[in-house]
Structures are given as C-alpha cells and as structure tokens.
C-alpha cells in the first residue's frame, strides 16, 4: 500500500498544523511541503536581518535542520510559521556573530522592478530601510515585521534594552521622514 502521488498533491494543501504534526512524527514529505511553503518569506526575513543575501542558503539550511530536530517538542503545531521565524532570527544572528565584519557589506537586496514603476510607499520603505544603519534596520524589522517584544529583541541581538529602544526610535524617525510622514 502506497500513499504516493495522490497523497503528495493533497499534502500541499494541508494546514501548517497538520504538516507540522506529520513532520514531528517523521514524515519528511510533509516537512518538505512546509519548507517550500515558508522558505520564500523566511529567506526575505533572513536577508533583511543579515543584509547578506549570499549567506541566506546557509542560514536556511541551519534553520531547517534545527527545525526538524526540534519539531517533536513544538507544543502548538499551528504556530509553526512563527516558530520558524524565531529559529531564523537566532540562526541569522548566530551567523553574523560568527563572521564579524568591521564594515558590513551592504549588499543590494532584491526589490521589485523599479525602472518604470510608481515610486510608491512600498519602494520608498524598501529603499529607506536599505539606507538605515544595519542595527537600526534590524531592530525595526524584528519589531515591526517579526513582532518581537523589546525583551526578545534585546536577547536576540545580545544588547541592552536601552539600545533597542534607542535604535528603534531613530529607525522610526528616519523611515517616517523618508516616507514623508512628519512634514
């Protein structure tokens, strides 16, 4: 008896929670579906945090291996996406700490085609974010995109909370100004 292809197709429609339960049981096909489903945004998140797109594959590989090992301990399988984001944060910063750079290489992050595009809100935000100093950008992304608390950000970045608040205030001010928000 094989569940094979019919099962595999329907698997791509399964909820995160069901897939996480199967993967925790050892079903690597379910895990593959989870990875394919979430790796694009995980990659985008990792890129925003590390600003080194060339390292994203390595980080994602570590995230996936860590997630596979820890899945049986995940209490709420429905929250596996948020859980993957938490793992991605830790792995991204672990990688940055392993490779300290005195001056960070600010690589070009992927952006929507811009030649004839309306320079709207989204592109303004992207380019403003890219121009922020690295730490301010990271703190802002962790807070506003990742939804972490000040405590969690401080712990993830291994800095005091006061540093987090300060960086966040500066980041918000700059982004707001760049988007014409405090005229």
């Amino acid at each position: 008896m094989e569940s094979s292809d019919v099962g595999a197709d329907v698997l791509t429609l399964a909820s995160d929670g069901l897939l996480a339960g199967r993967a925790a049981d050892g079903d690597d096909r379910a895990f593959a579906v989870l990875l394919r489903r979430h790796s694009p945004v995980l990659r985008a998140y990792v890129n925003r945090l590390t600003r080194r797109p060339s390292d994203a594959d390595d980080v994602l590989q570590e995230v996936a291996l860590t997630a596979w090992k820890a899945l049986p301990q995940l209490q709420n399988p429905d929250s596996v996406k948020a859980w993957l984001f938490r793992i991605a944060e830790r792995q991204a910063f672990a990688m940055l700490r392993r490779q300290p750079q005195t001056a960070e290489i600010d690589e070009e992050l992927p952006s929507a085609e811009d030649s004839l595009a309306r320079f709207d809100d989204r592109d303004q935000l992207r380019s403003a974010l890219s121009r922020l100093p690295a730490q301010q950008a990271r703190v802002w992304v962790l807070r506003e995109v990742g939804g972490l608390s000040y405590d969690e950000i401080a712990e993830t970045l291994a800095v005091p909370q006061s540093t987090v608040r300060g960086a966040l205030a500066l980041a918000r001010k700059r982004l707001l100004d760049a988007m014409g928000g405090t005229a």
Binding site: S111, D121, L176, M179, G180, G181
Partner: peptide
C-alpha cells in the same frame, strides 16, 4: 500627521516580506 505616517509605515511593514519573496 505623524500618527498617519506611523500607520502607513506599519501597514507597509506587514507586506514587506511577502513582497520581497514575490519579487525574488
């Protein structure tokens, strides 16, 4: 005005990763 700007910023933040992912 600042609140309006902050709300716009927050709304754009929510979409940021999805758009990055789609554009990649």
């Amino acid at each position: 005005i600042a609140l309006a700007g902050l709300e716009r910023l927050r709304a754009r933040a929510a979409d940021l990763l999805e758009e990055d992912a789609a554009a990649a």
